[in-house]
Amino acid sequence: MKRNPLILVFIAAVVAAMLFAGIHIARKNHAGGVAPGQLIGQTAPDFELQSLEGKSVKLSDFRGKAVLLNFWATYCGPCKIEMPWFVELQKEYGPQGFQIVGVAMDDASSEDIAKFAKEMGVNYPILLGKESVGQSYGGVGVLPTTFFVDRDGKITDREFGLQSRSVFVANIKKALSQGQAVQARR
């Protein structure tokens, strides 16, 4: 088959443009830290944040429990949809050694965040997020972003954006089934 050199040059140009765009975007996105996808199977980065009650809370305090780590914000409509599910899931799976931890990633005052959480009937700890914590989780550029951590502190899954309730249930069951149940400090 005779190949038209012009077509080959065109294909090469398109391929080069795609490669350049892909690498450029990947570099730009990963400049702030590890990519969220790379965290799966790794130990969840530990952090220490203030809770709405003014207590200092570490993620490692929950070692021995399966944790749903939810990055959210008061301005985030899709986050609002998930919260009532989280309240139910905390009640349902809490006795099995499951804990939801919310990390508020917005600039609203702690009073406003507390008011919002109260309106939503939140029954799990809400921590006041910091950019550095978001960066350690690959940069939280999408809200909600949710990580699932097993009893040993390893990340089993992560979800970006609003998911169906069944996705959360499946991920929670998976996190609960992995790692060793030991007495958590909280």
């Binding site: 190949r3 490669l19 892909g22 996105n29 990519a35 996808g37 690959g138 940069g139 999408v142």
Partner: peptide, 26 residues
């Protein structure tokens, strides 16, 4: 020419990887 679709797929994957979970690129 047979390799072209495979290369395209690979590059598309690289492109999508760059966008993974980070929201809008611009």
């Amino acid at each position: 020419m047979r390799q072209t679709p495979a290369i395209g797929l690979l590059l598309l994957s690289a492109f999508l990887y760059g966008q993974d979970g980070h929201g809008p690129t611009g």
